[in-house]
Every structure is written in C-alpha cells, then in structure tokens.
Amino acid sequence: MTPAPALTLARRQALINRTDMAGPGRLRLVNAAGQSLVSIELDQPCGTVDATGVALTDTEFAQVTTTGEVAGALLEDAAGERLATFTAGLASTIPAPELPLPAAQLYAGAFVRLIGAHIVCD
C-alpha cells in the first residue's frame, strides 16, 4: 500500500498533535537493550511537518543519566504514553536511522539538546 501524500502529511501532523496534547512530550534516547540514556523534554509544538518527516523544535538541555550508545528513540506524550519508536544513530549509518544524530555515544552527567533534529517518517 502506498498512502496518498495528503494522508502521509496528516499522519505526521497527528503525531505532533498527539505529542503536544496534554503538555510537553518527551523524546527518550535508548540503548540497544531499551534502557533510557536521556529523556529530553520537547517544546510545544514539538515540531513541524515537512516533506520527509517531522522537524523537531530545538530543545533545552537534558542531563544524560546512563552512559551508552544510542540505538533508538521513544516519543512519549506528557503522561509517558509511548507514541512512536524510531531507530537512532549516526547520520552516516547504513541503513540511515529514522533519527540521525551527530554522535551516538552518550556519557552519564553530560548534557545534550536537540538542535535541527529531524525524524524521517511516513
């Protein structure tokens, strides 16, 4: 099945709307075992729809709680309900991750923020 472009755009907008519905959502970066490395509070709106996915709004700093390599990202609403799961990693990784990052290794105690982050999704 290939959805019509209007449907694809509507699904992306629905993801943004649902994330923002009850307050600021969160993006948790996790390792391959699913352990949370950092939880980043998203701004409202959390992003905007574009031609290939969702461009996330730049965030404030969040402190890394666990050292490890980022393998995925979990998008959650303000109540902590998981809305989507994405692959994450270096932009140079083949196949390309859905959430490309400039670095994949995080260290406990460090601070990270999202600037120009983009989720590739349909």
Results as ranks from 00 to 15, higher is better:
Glu41Met: 07
Arg12Trp: 06
Thr8Pro: 08
Ala14Asp: 12
Val120Met: 06
Met1Leu: 09
Ala32Phe: 03
Ala22Leu: 10
Leu29Met: 05
Ala55Lys: 06
Pro45Val: 15
Thr57Pro: 10
Ile115Ser: 10
Arg18Ser: 04
Thr57Phe: 02
Gly72Arg: 04
Pro95Trp: 00
Ala104His: 12
Thr8Ile: 15
Ala33Thr: 12
Phe61Ser: 06
His118Phe: 09
Glu76Gly: 04
Ala62Trp: 03
Asp43Ser: 14
Ala78Ser: 13
Tyr107Thr: 15
Arg82Lys: 00
Ala110Phe: 01
Gly25Met: 08
Pro45Thr: 15
Arg113Pro: 03
Asp50Met: 11
Val30His: 01
Ala14His: 01
Ala10Pro: 02
Leu37Gly: 13
Ala78Gln: 04
Ala104Asn: 15
Leu42Pro: 06
Val49Lys: 00
Ala108Arg: 07
Val38Cys: 02
Gly47Lys: 10
Leu75Tyr: 05
Glu60Val: 09
Ala117Pro: 01
Ala55Val: 09
Thr65Asp: 01
Phe61Tyr: 07
Gln63Ala: 10
Gly68Pro: 12
Met21Glu: 09
Pro45Gln: 15
Pro5Glu: 04
Gly34Met: 06
Ala62Thr: 13
Thr2Ala: 10
Asp122Ser: 13
Tyr107Phe: 15
Ala71Tyr: 09
His118Cys: 11
Glu98Asp: 15
Pro24Asp: 09
Gly80Thr: 03
Thr48Asn: 09
Gly89Thr: 03
Ile119Ala: 13
Ala117His: 05
Val120Pro: 01
Ala62Glu: 11
Ala96Asn: 03
Ala71Asn: 11
Asp50His: 10
Ala33Lys: 07
Ala108Pro: 05
Gln105Gly: 07
Glu69Ser: 10
Ala79Thr: 13
Pro24Thr: 14
Ala78Asp: 04
Leu42Ser: 05
Ala79Tyr: 14
Thr67Arg: 00
Gly109Val: 07
Leu15Gly: 02
Gly80Gln: 02
Ala96Gln: 08
Leu90Val: 06
Gln44His: 11
Ile115Pro: 00
Tyr107Leu: 15
Leu99Phe: 12
Pro24Cys: 10
Ile40Asn: 00
Arg26Gln: 04
Gly89Trp: 00
Arg18Phe: 00
Val38Gln: 04
Gly34Asn: 06
Leu106Val: 12
Val64Ser: 04
Ala10Trp: 01
Thr48Tyr: 03
Phe61Gly: 02
Pro95His: 06
Ala22Ser: 10
Pro95Gly: 08
His118Met: 13
Val30Gly: 03
Ala33Asn: 08
Gln105Asn: 10
Asp122Pro: 11
Gly116Thr: 11
